[in-house]
Design a protein around this nucleic acid. Sequence first.
DNA 1: TGGCCTACCAAACAATTGTTTGATACTATT
DNA 2: AATAGTATCAAACAATTGTTTGGTAGGCCA
Lengths: 214, 214
Amino acid sequence: MKDQTQLRVVQAAGPIFADKGFDRATIREICTAAEANLASVNYHFGDKETLYLEAVRHAHALKMEQVPLSQWPSNTPPEEQLRFFIRAMLSRMLGTDELDWGTRLLMREMIEPTIACKSIVEDFIRPQLQLLLSILDEMVPQNISFHRKHQMAFSIVGQCLHYRVAREFVNLLIPEKERAEHFDRNHLVDHITEFSLAAIKNLPIPDSSEKKTS
Amino acid sequence: MKDQTQLRVVQAAGPIFADKGFDRATIREICTAAEANLASVNYHFGDKETLYLEAVRHAHALKMEQVPLSQWPSNTPPEEQLRFFIRAMLSRMLGTDELDWGTRLLMREMIEPTIACKSIVEDFIRPQLQLLLSILDEMVPQNISFHRKHQMAFSIVGQCLHYRVAREFVNLLIPEKERAEHFDRNHLVDHITEFSLAAIKNLPIPDSSEKKTS
DNA sequence: TGGCCTACCAAACAATTGTTTGATACTATT
DNA sequence: AATAGTATCAAACAATTGTTTGGTAGGCCA
């Protein structure tokens, strides 16, 4: 049977799309990397855009199978669950540059959404959000509203996201030495966890009354 | 004197680069928008890339003059200063789509830094960070360390950044109605401010001892 | 006036890139 | 064995795009 060139092409396309973007990535480069003929993209996928879509879905499927959502004992206290969650999310985002092209693809979808965006959110993002919400559920009053729980969740996610999205800015803002010493993954997990826990536990709980909006 | 075509080109280039990116934006489109000849880019700027740089610098200069950093009475309590700061930052990020191309350019620089990145950080980002740090200074113990203050600042910035970077994801995750009602600018300012204040005021202050890192 | 420089323009150029084509080997089916 | 279908390939194609060119108009100065 043929040498699975279709598969080789998708696999080669992922990293290339990830770090050069849709436009800068050329079919020629992808096919060369996949050791496939130039025409194989149009033969197997129709055009460049559907190859991109397929590559994103492939990356997404990979992430799903290699990063299981939750895996802690069922009796883990919610505070520790949150720490685990944050650790996992930060790990995914700050992945060493070898194999984090999946995340890079995701970032691109964020600021320049394509058709792949919707399925990514439903299959990949939403389950994570649900998990985070269920952790929060054990720490906040039962009667808290939908949107407040979501706002808290986004506050936590945002803190993690920052170190990926604004990574280059952080590098320029924080001196090398300081960064190596206090902004590595472990310290960031600790900080974000404690910052968030302190916030969650001391947040005022006015749910029905409107708040001052200056 | 000539019709300032050089200026017209930079001005036209900004929005186009912002929403199509460097590659998708064509010199022809820019020149058409600027009502300038196709050759003017190469005549006035040398090549496409330096035009891009000039456009970014131009956008950046505009932002600087139209969004003054702080303007609150000197006796404003730090809690309210923080609220103002967050409001200003969110406003800049969620700007109505007409004139927020400056921010869009910034986003692109974040995830795909060019040579313009460094000067943007120094002239635009760092002053904002300094201002935020000075606000925090009035709310945290004096002896708190450099990196912990910066981590707090990043936690605040990250929460705001999230709603811009992951905007499309939020739109898909939160139903339209809910979003219009509880995720508009005013409500987000309130939430982020209170979340951050609760965190800041209740954060443990272990500065010398290492923390658990699971 | 006559030269000189700058700004501008229409047209052409050269390189890249996505896509198509026609042929060839190979497999499976009848 | 003959046929049909699939996968692969080298080469060509067509469109786009950044860049260059040669020329024109007009201001400025000697």
